[in-house]
């Protein structure tokens, strides 16, 4: 009478759920297969050290890759300190009043603003008003503003995970507020913050639209040498190649995508490993 019996009505929900999951991952698989079949042939050393060119066989991503690395470094330099310090202020110092709530709500809303709108801000503010021109620094400032909300929210999250009793212990031995913040709380929160920072930076690496609006070059046969130079980026290069009708350029785009995806996935992977390690550490202590 109590024998286990599978009811037919129990089946559709999990089956449909599994099917949906499979659809999503099949798409991911198709994406990777398609890109590799199109682009793997183009992977060669010369692809990395050649400049962009009108001739597909001679074209490479040297200037684009260098531009992306420049952008990544500058963006990290600007966004990491500002983002983490903002989080420290909001979570640890700010009084719980209406203004603080306003800043917090504002950050959540900024995270939902489309990247192209940041591009417009960058164009008007950094390129024109501040006179940076269509330079690396204008692009990096724009990308920094774009990923700041992500970094701030992730940092706040990891500050919240620091147990209250650690702060009490530090205050209890007569540490000053800033000593508690920088020597106790922050050092505990940093591993969690790094996860958020890596994910945010990997997002900035793939951003294309805001760079187009601030006037990144579609074609650059030179390397940027300082942060006031004009630039192109991997994402822009991919967009440029992908929007050309010729098959050869489409394949170049695929090859460049392999490069950008490798970097993105690697960054994501590192971030995830870090998170797993953190959660297992928390489970033991």
């Amino acid at each position: 009478m109590f024998a286990k019996k599978l009811h037919w009505k129990s089946l559709p929900l999990p089956v449909a759920g599994l099917a949906s999951l499979i659809i999503a991952f099949l798409f991911l698989a198709f994406l990777l297969i398609h890109i590799f079949s199109e682009g793997a042939g183009g992977l060669s050393w010369s692809f990395f050290i050649n400049f962009a060119s009108r001739f597909p066989t001679k074209a490479g991503i040297y200037s684009a890759l260098m531009g992306s690395l420049w952008l990544l470094a500058l963006t990290a330099l600007i966004s990491i300190p500002v983002g983490i310090f903002s989080a420290l202020y909001l979570e640890e110092i700010a009084a719980k009043n209406a203004f603080t709530n306003f800043i917090r709500g504002n950050i959540a809303n900024l995270a939902g603003v489309p990247s192209i709108v940041y591009g417009l801000l960058g164009l008007a503010l950094f390129v024109r008003i501040l006179g940076f021109g269509s330079s690396l620094i204008a692009g990096a400032c724009t990308l920094s503003l774009l990923i700041l909300p992500v970094i701030i929210m992730a940092s706040i999250e990891s500050l919240r995970a620091v147990p209250r009793k650690l702060r009490e212990a530090a205050f209890g031995v007569g540490a000053s507020p800033m000593q508690v913040l920088f020597e106790h709380t922050l050092s505990q929160a940093i591993p969690g913050m790094i996860t958020g920072v890596i994910l945010a930076l990997s997002r900035s690496l793939g951003e294309t639209a805001p760079l187009i609006t601030v006037g990144a070059l579609a074609f650059a046969a030179f390397l940027p040498e300082s942060m006031t130079d004009q630039f192109t980026s991997l994402s822009i290069q991919i967009f440029n190649w992908a929007s050309r009708p010729q098959m050869e350029f489409q394949e170049l785009a695929a090859t460049a995508i392999i490069v950008i995806l490798s970097i993105t996935f690697m960054m994501n992977f590192v971030a995830m490993l870090l998170r797993w390690k953190l959660s297992s550490r928390k489970a033991t202590s």
Partner: peptide, 10 residues
């Protein structure tokens, strides 16, 4: 995490 330009290409 895949850049949107990649989705466009696809």
């Amino acid at each position: 995490g895949i850049p949107t330009v990649v989705y466009g290409y696809l």
